[in-house]
Design a protein around this nucleic acid. Structure first.
Length: 580
RNA sequence: GCCGAUGUAGCUCAGGGGUAGAGCAACUCCAUGGUAAGGAGUAGGUCGACAGUUCAAUUCUGUCCAUCGGCUCCA
């Protein structure tokens, strides 16, 4: 049985064969199977380079070639033979070097008239296994040789491939669905945020609607934290760069800092790219006793990172990012309690938001102790503690050795959205390094000075990014507590607007975000309200005005019976309070 | 940042070396409406910005800005 991955890998060869025919000067490099299909990277220097418009032609020649690929066979060759065969292709020669070094055998695979250096893992009978209508060439893109930007830029051709035409069509449908949910599109349609070329790329501007969502999310996060003893602090958004020279961030992330120049003094400033160094200075401002710990500082605040412009995208990749950040300073014996408390907040947060998540326990790689700073014994104990927390709270978790930060192990939360895509949002991280760098201390029960452990945590992570994810997860149909417009009142005709105002006033007095729409035809106003995914639409006409009721059209439950206004207000108030 | 594509009205898009068009939205008027687009009219654009070629540039060329698809990293 030929696996889909083998078919995809085989198609990468077929693509290379088609390219070799049409672009003889092209140097093939590597072409693996990937999620949803395959790609092949070529160096086209010294001749024509295909564009998007040429993909159809290449695809056709792949189909023409496929019937002649009845068998695909591999043969082992000597290093000298392999070098001779790929003379003039530095990329393949580099690969051969690698194979020789690792002591593996060099194999060539041939199908039809095309032979490629390859480890294997193909369909043995491509013409039989692969359906001509189960694949398509998708797009063309640049990619660095071996993913390193110091290397030459190659041209990558992506293909989509599945077992059947139906699977391919289903994939296309999924992409269409994702496009409809695209937060950049919904951001415009639902009037949530915008960008301005004058302000700059990666700097989102939130409209009143989008701001409501941001603030409701932040409020929820802060409520959870306050309940667990977190205290809110406030810090300025710039600092002398000395702060980051001390913390170590200057060396590591200096090129991502936005620098700020003072015209008054010689001090150099930077916009803060993270909050922890500032927070350490609040901790450091006075002597601390072991009795004071844990000290928990939280703040919903904006950081600025000069990301590479080519990487910016909607709300998921920005240069101004607001985090529901917090830092705990505690004793080593308090780590477990704090980790548990944070994880419980995360569970509550995503449970309420209706999203599943999986935890990745990012630990050190015991084979490379030099990569990690801090006391190895403390690392070991901390990792055991984190594992215990994951088990105790019955998390869906996996251990990822080697994924830890250099300063401490962490739990990264991968949130799963409605389309099954995973996003890293929440995180809780131990930090053994910054407390030392800033010489933070507390006086222990025996009178000695000790260094506290620091824990970084975020529930939503970057709120901008989370909003992007959540807009796509809900397709813009936000739960009532988050919906910018919770209720829209539609009087059937102008003579009902007076009662409409009355209803509106009652809703607003109860703290419900409501508005009235009395412009166009009723049908059109219903349509508009549905388009905006407003949770409740109230239609009021003669009957309602008379009986002082409202007819409720619920986004999620359809048309409900007419109820007294007071009953409806109570219902919505309760729903909002429960974040249902 | 790099490779490729794109940029025409608020939105979605057509057009094209002789200074532009549609639908929706907006505005005005008519329609008094009962659950997914009632009708008529009006207004709206330095054709992303700046240079160059040309008698003439929104159209061709270059640079920049922005957006999209990739590549790499992420406190």
């Amino acid at each position: 049985m030929t696996s889909l991955e083998e078919k995809r890998h085989t198609l990468a060869h077929l693509l290379a064969a088609a390219v070799a025919e049409r672009y003889p000067h092209a140097k093939p490099t590597i072409g693996p199977a990937v999620e949803n299909g395959f790609y092949y990277d070529f160096d086209f220097t010294g001749g024509d380079m295909p564009g998007e418009a040429d993909l159809a032609e290449l695809e056709n020649s792949m189909r023409e070639m496929l019937p002649s690929w009845s068998d695909m066979t591999g043969t082992e060759v000597s290093e000298a033979d392999a070098r001779a065969r790929f003379e003039g292709n530095p990329f393949k020669l580099e690969l051969i070097n690698g194979i020789v070094q690792s002591g593996e055998k060099i194999t060539l695979y041939t199908a039809g008239d095309f032979t490629d250096l390859c480890r294997g893992g193909h369909s043995e009978h491509p013409s039989k296994d692969i359906k001509a209508d189960s694949f398509t060439l998708d797009r063309i893109a640049g990619a660095y040789w071996r993913g390193d930007e110091k290397n030459p830029m190659l041209t990558r051709i992506y293909g989509l491939a599945f077992d059947t035409k139906e699977d391919l069509a289903a994939y296309h449908e999924k992409i269409e669905d994702a496009k409809k949910r695209d937060h950049r599109k919904l951001g415009v349609e639902l009037d949530l945020f915008t960008f301005s070329p004058l302000v700059g790329s990666g700097l989102p501007l939130y409209t009143p609607n989008g701001t409501i969502i941001r603030e409701e999310l932040a409020k929820f996060s802060e409520e959870l934290q306050r309940a667990h003893g977190f205290q809110k602090v406030w810090i300025p958004h710039i600092t002398k760069i000395d702060l980051y020279k001390t913390s170590g961030h200057w060396d590591k992330f200096g090129d991502e800092l936005f620098l700020v120049k003072s015209q008054e003094s010689s001090d150099e400033f930077a916009l803060k790219p993270m909050n922890c160094p500032h927070h350490t200075q609040i901790y450091a401002a006075k002597p601390r006793s072991y009795r004071d710990l844990p000290v928990r500082y939280m703040e919903t605040t904006t950081c600025y990172r000069d990301e590479k412009t080519g990487e910016l995208s909607g709300l998921t990749r920005v240069r101004s990012l607001t985090q529901d950040d917090a830092h705990i300073f505690c004793r080593p014996d308090q780590i477990q309690g704090e980790f548990e408390a944070i994880m419980n907040m995360i569970k509550k947060m995503y449970g309420t938001l209706g999203m599943e998540f999986r935890a990745r326990l990012s630990f050190s790689d015991s084979a490379k102790p030099e990569k990690y700073l801090g006391d190895p014994q403390l690392w070991k104990e901390a990792e055991a503690t984190i594992l215990e927390v994951a088990k105790k709270l019955e998390l869906n978790y996996e251990v990822a050795p080697g994924e830890a930060a250099f300063y401490g192990p962490k739990i990264d939360i991968m949130v799963v959205d409605a389309l099954g895509r995973e996003w890293q949002c929440a995180t809780e991280q131990l930090d053994f390094v910054q407390p030392q760098r800033f010489s933070l201390e507390y006086t222990d029960s025996d009178g000695t000075k000790k260094t506290p452990v620091m824990i970084h945590k975020a529930l939503l992570g970057t709120i901008d990014r989370f909003m992007g994810v959540y807009i796509e997860h809900t397709a813009g149909a936000f739960p009532t507590w988050l919906a910018p417009i919770q209720v829209r009142v539609l009087p059937v005709s102008e003579k009902h607007t007076e009662y409409g105002e009355e209803v509106l006033a009652q809703l607003r007095t109860a703290g419900i975000r409501a508005e009235m729409d009395d412009g166009d035809s009723l049908g059109k106003r219903i349509r508009n309200a549905k388009g905006l995914k407003i949770p409740y639409v109230l239609v009021i006409g003669d009957a309602e005005s008379e009986a002082k009721t409202v007819t409720v059209e619920s986004r999620d439950e359809g048309k409900l019976d007419a109820v007294p206004v007071g009953d409806f207000v109570e219902r919505v108030k309760k729903e909002i309070a429960n974040r249902a």
